[in-house]
């Protein structure tokens, strides 16, 4: 479970998160919707521990533990995962090498034994197959020359291998055609688990037809301005953000 309490964060002196509170319970899928520039990606970075953001108030508790003092790698080892809106290209490092290093680093920091190469290969191959990721992509440099859709699939593949307890998906639907959207959503849905929670950030209601959320939050100007059930997403789709955005002002 993740609890964000009255969070304030800024970058380069610019206040972007302004007293945001949000709880996502174990097993819950929460969606965040909001206009461009409302601070959704910033929130995902602050939760996952990107350097450069200054948290000027509030706290983020993961299963009761404040994670704000931890760096990104420590948070990842605690189970935080961010599927990036714009996944980075890592030239010179094959996808396979990268996945193995990440998986084993997390296991090591949790005091677990490293995976043997055959065991690792088995897991990657099974995961890749489910997401329609061709094997030869795993031997290429991570995300280098991948299409937008391939990058998103790769993010979900990494998520499935790392088995996080709290996963943020930042606009994972952008750049996906309908078929890819379905495959990726199935991949996410397969990971739904009573012990795992998700924060699904999206711009469009469309994704939420595939990944059906338990709760929907509307974000505006760095705050949650409205919370409701999944029907709220449809309401937003029909009427736009205007009604809610006004409340934050």
């Amino acid at each position: 479970m993740i609890e964000i309490r009255n969070l304030h964060a800024e970058i380069d002196g610019k206040k972007i998160i302004n007293g945001l509170s949000l709880t996502v319970n174990d097993g819950e899928v929460a969606a965040i919707m909001g206009p461009n520039g409302s601070g959704k990606s910033t929130l995902s970075y602050v939760i996952s521990g990107r350097a450069g953001y200054e948290v000027t108030g509030g706290e983020i508790l993961l299963n009761g533990e404040n994670i704000l003092e931890m760096n990104a790698a420590e948070r990842a080892a605690k189970g935080v995962f961010l599927a990036f809106q714009y996944p980075l290209e890592i030239p010179g490092v094959t996808t396979m090498t990268f996945l193995k290093a990440c998986l084993n680093a997390q296991r090591k920091s949790r005091g677990e034994a490293e995976l043997t190469t055959p065991d690792f290969m088995k897991r990657v191959k099974a995961g890749a197959e489910k997401l329609g990721v061709p094997q030869d992509m795993l031997r290429r440099a991570l995300n280098v020359g991948f299409s937008g859709g391939e990058k998103k699939r790769m993010e979900v593949l990494q998520m499935s291998l790392l088995e996080p307890t709290f996963a943020i998906l930042d606009e994972t639907d952008s750049g996906l055609d309908i078929d890819a959207l379905r495959i990726v959503s199935e991949g996410v849905n397969a990971l739904r688990d009573p012990k795992r929670s998700f924060l699904v950030i999206t711009h469009y209601q469309r994704l939420l037809d595939y990944i059906v959320p338990d709760t929907v939050h509307v974000m505006s100007k760095g705050q949650i301005v409205k919370t409701g059930a999944k029907e709220l997403a449809l309401e937003l789709e029909a009427n736009g953000y205007r009604d809610f955005v006004g409340e934050a002002a």
Partner: peptide, 14 residues
């Protein structure tokens, strides 16, 4: 820095 963060967010110590 973005690449470093990406790798760290996947669990690699800095």
């Amino acid at each position: 820095e973005d690449q470093v963060f990406y790798a760290m967010a996947r669990g690699l110590p800095k």
